[in-house]
Amino acid sequence: MRRVEHVMGFPVSLRIDDEGDFEPAADAVFAWLRQVDVRFSPFRHDSEVSRYGRGELAADELSADLTEVLGLCEQYRAATGGAFDVRLPGRNLDPCAVVKGWSVQRAAGVLSAAGARRFCLNAGGDVVVSGGPWRVGIRHPEQAGRLCAVLAVTDAAVATSGRYERGDHILDGRTGRPATGLLSLTVVAPTLTEADGTATAAFALGPDGPAWAAARTGCEVFAVDTARRTVRTPGLPVAA
């Protein structure tokens, strides 16, 4: 089965190659993602994230899900020395860089629990797959119609951070200014929670980001810097 819906501001596509009726599981996946958007969007005045950011909720009043997400954000903040930070001065609390991968990985768990063994869930270009290998392209950061590489991915996730879709939206928390030094950075990891968070945090680190991401357990990296040089780790699963 195949399905595409627009959720959380981007297209989410689901492909399941197994035999069986997975429509109920697909319904649950998209219902969950819509729920995440309502609860965690910093662009919704009444979301839990916005209410907490304005001080209307105390830490002990937060849902277990938001507590988990904020815990992940703090781990990345500490690991990058503050380059990744969802609490920048003068800006609203914005954990989207972690929420996306975390929520889509949770959705993949719904599919696995329903018995799906071979599927691809693509959320705005960040991908989690079961089974495989699946061929996943890494977009050229300056030419939309070209690919830098094609990966062969099995039971893993791929996430890319860059400025080609949304401009300089990733800020270096140490300076409050747009991160510099990289055009794009892709991470392959066991889960999309790890791949997405690591890719964004590494991009915020700038030139030091690829080495930092590569040192994290289970992560492989492909990056393009502003001098148009590429960096790739030896274990990157490049398709033949």
Rank of each mutant, 00 (worst) to 15 (best):
R2N: 13
V4E: 15
V7M: 00
F10G: 04
S13P: 00
S13K: 09
D17W: 11
F22S: 11
F22A: 10
A25M: 01
D27Q: 13
A28C: 07
V29D: 00
L33M: 11
L33E: 03
R34K: 14
Q35F: 08
V36H: 08
D37E: 15
P42L: 07
P42I: 07
D46G: 09
S47L: 07
E48H: 08
G53A: 14
R54A: 15
R54C: 03
L57K: 02
L62H: 02
A64E: 15
L66Y: 12
T67C: 13
T67G: 15
V69M: 13
V69F: 07
L72Q: 03
E74M: 04
Y76N: 01
Y76S: 04
R77K: 14
T80M: 09
G81M: 13
G82N: 11
F84Q: 10
V86M: 07
R87N: 10
G90N: 08
R91P: 00
L93Q: 08
D94N: 15
P95V: 06
C96G: 06
C96P: 00
A97E: 06
W102T: 09
Q105R: 00
A107Q: 07
V110K: 12
G115M: 08
G115I: 10
R118Q: 12
G125C: 12
D126C: 07
V127M: 02
S130T: 00
G131V: 07
W134Q: 03
V136G: 01
V136N: 05
I138A: 13
I138W: 01
I138M: 13
R139S: 14
R139D: 08
P141Y: 13
A144F: 14
L147M: 14
C148H: 12
L151N: 03
V153R: 01
A156C: 05
A156W: 01
A156N: 02
V158P: 04
S161W: 07
S161H: 00
G162R: 07
R163L: 14
Y164L: 04
E165L: 08
E165V: 05
E165W: 06
G167W: 08
I170K: 02
D172S: 05
G173M: 09
G176L: 12
G176Q: 11
G181V: 03
L182T: 07
S184Y: 04
L185Y: 01
T186H: 02
V188A: 05
P190L: 05
T191P: 06
T191Y: 03
A195W: 06
T200F: 03
A201Q: 08
A202R: 04
L205Q: 14
P207W: 10
A213T: 11
A214D: 08
A214P: 02
G218H: 06
C219M: 05
C219R: 02
E220Y: 06
A223F: 06
V224F: 00
R229G: 05
R229P: 00
T230N: 05
T230P: 01
T230R: 15
V231W: 14
V231N: 01
R232A: 14
T233F: 12
G235T: 03
L236R: 04
P237Q: 08
V238R: 07
A239F: 04
